[in-house]
C-alpha cells in the first residue's frame, strides 16, 4: 500500500476551488466564465487543467477524469454535450490573459507559456513567427491550456525525514512520470528546507526555475510558497543557473527540476564539488527507465545522489512508490510491507 500526498493548503473545505474562482475564472471570456462558475466546488477542487481550442469542445481535466463543459454549466464525460470554444471566446480569453497587450508578451509567447498571479501556468499554441529560423513569438493563438497551480503544503511531510541525515540534507533525485506531482513535491521540499522543521535548521536554498513552474514567478516575484530563505533564478537555463548560484549566492542547497541535458551534468559536478547539496527531478518511471538516457546514466554513475524518490499516478498524482538510498536499496520497504 502506498501513500499519496493531498493535503489542502489553507484549510477550508474547498481551498483550490476558491483559488480557481478568484484567480483563474476572471481570465476566461465572459460566456465561458459564466458557465464554469456554475460548476460546484467539489468538482472544481479536483480540476487540473482547463483546455480551450478553437472550434473544439471545452475540456476540463480533473485528477482522475476528463470532463467536458456542458451548455448549462454542468460537466459531462461525453464530448457530444459539450459547449464549443469559438473564435471570439478564444480572442477574449487571450486578451484577458495578456491584459490586452499581446505585444508585451513576446518573451512569454516565445517560450509558449505565461504565469498568472497565483502561479497558474497558461500554455499557448498558435502560428509561430520566425526570425532567422528561430521562433520570435506566436500569433493567431488557437489553443490555451490553463494549468491550475496546486500548492499542496504537506506533500513532503511524510518523506522529508528520509532525505535528511544528522541535520544535513542528502542529495536527492525525484523520479516521476508526467503529472505525478513531481513539481509539487519538489516545491514542498524546498519550502521545508528553507523554513526548517523540527530537527532541521533552515538553510539557504538556491532555486533555478527555468520554466517558472516551481516558484511560479510573475514579473520576478514568486507567486507560490517556496520558503523564507529561497533565492529564485527565474527563467534561467538550468546548467548556467546552477553555476551562477554557486558563484553568487553561496546556497547550502541548490534545487532545480527536469535535468537531462549535457550542460546539466557538468553543472551538477560543479555544485557537488562546491560542497552544495542538490535537489532535482527527472522524468521517468523507475531506475531502468532513466538509465536508458545517456546523460542521466552518466550522472548516476558518479553516485552523486544519496536518495531517490520514485513517484507515480497509481493512486492519483503524488503516489510515493518508494524511496531508495545511494545503493538503490529501498528505505521504506519494511514500512510499505507493513501497510
Amino acid at each position: 500500500m502506498t501513500n499519496t500526498f493531498e493535503i489542502s493548503r489553507s484549510g477550508g473545505s474547498f481551498p483550490i476551488a476558491q483559488n480557481i474562482r478568484q484567480e483563474v475564472l476572471p481570465f476566461l471570456s465572459p460566456d465561458l466564465r459564466m458557465l464554469v462558475s456554475q460548476i460546484p466546488d467539489y468538482e472544481l477542487e479536483v480540476l487540473e487543467e482547463i483546455r480551450l481550442r478553437i472550434n473544439a469542445p471545452v475540456l476540463l481535466k480533473q485528477r482522475t477524469e476528463d470532463k467536458y463543459l456542458r451548455k448549462d454549466g454542468g460537466l459531462s464525460t461525453r464530448w457530444e454535450h459539450s459547449v464549443y470554444c469559438n473564435e471570439e471566446n478564444m480572442q477574449k480569453t487571450v486578451a484577458l490573459l495578456c491584459n490586452s497587450s499581446l505585444y508585451a508578451l513576446e518573451e512569454e509567447l516565445r517560450k509558449g507559456f505565461l504565469t498568472l498571479p497565483g502561479g497558474h501556468r497558461t500554455g499557448f499554441v498558435g502560428r509561430a513567427v520566425l526570425d532567422r529560423g528561430r521562433v520570435r513569438t506566436l500569433k493567431q493563438i488557437s489553443g490555451v491550456n490553463i494549468r491550475v497551480a496546486r500548492c499542496v503544503s504537506g506533500a513532503a511531510l511524510q518523506i522529508i525525514r528520509h532525505l535528511v541525515k544528522g541535520g544535513v540534507f542528502l542529495n536527492t533525485l525525484i523520479i516521476s512520470p508526467p503529472r505525478a506531482g513531481k513539481t509539487t513535491l519538489l516545491r514542498d521540499i524546498i519550502c521545508m528546507l528553507s523554513n526548517g522543521f523540527s530537527g532541521f535548521s533552515p538553510v539557504d536554498v538556491g532555486l533555478v526555475d527555468e520554466r517558472s513552474e516551481i516558484a511560479g514567478c510573475r514579473e520576478g516575484i514568486p507567486q507560490l510558497p517556496i520558503g523564507r530563505r529561497t533565492d529564485v533564478l527565474d527563467g534561467c537555463p538550468k546548467g548556467e543557473g546552477m553555476m551562477m548560484l554557486v558563484r553568487s549566492m553561496s546556497p547550502q542547497v541548490i534545487a532545480t527540476d527536469e535535468i537531462g541535458r549535457k550542460e546539466d551534468a557538468d553543472a551538477i559536478e560543479e555544485v557537488i564539488n562546491a560542497g552544495i547539496k542538490l535537489l532535482t527531478t527527472v522524468h521517468g518511471y523507475n531506475k531502468e527507465d532513466i538509465l536508458r538516457r545517456p546523460v542521466i546514466k552518466e550522472i548516476l554513475a558518479q553516485k552523486v545522489f544519496e536518495r531517490y524518490v520514485v513517484l507515480s499516478r497509481r493512486r492519483g498524482p503524488g503516489t510515493i512508490e518508494n524511496i531508495f538510498n545511494e545503493e538503490w536499496l529501498p528505505i521504506r520497504e519494511r514500512r510499505l510491507k507493513e501497510c
Binding site: V94, C98, S100, S101, L102, Y103, E106, V129, T137, K139
Partner: peptide
C-alpha cells in the same frame, strides 16, 4: 486591433 497582435503589427 489595439493590443491584440505582436509588436510589428502594432
Amino acid at each position: 486591433g489595439l493590443g491584440s497582435s505582436d509588436r510589428e503589427d502594432q
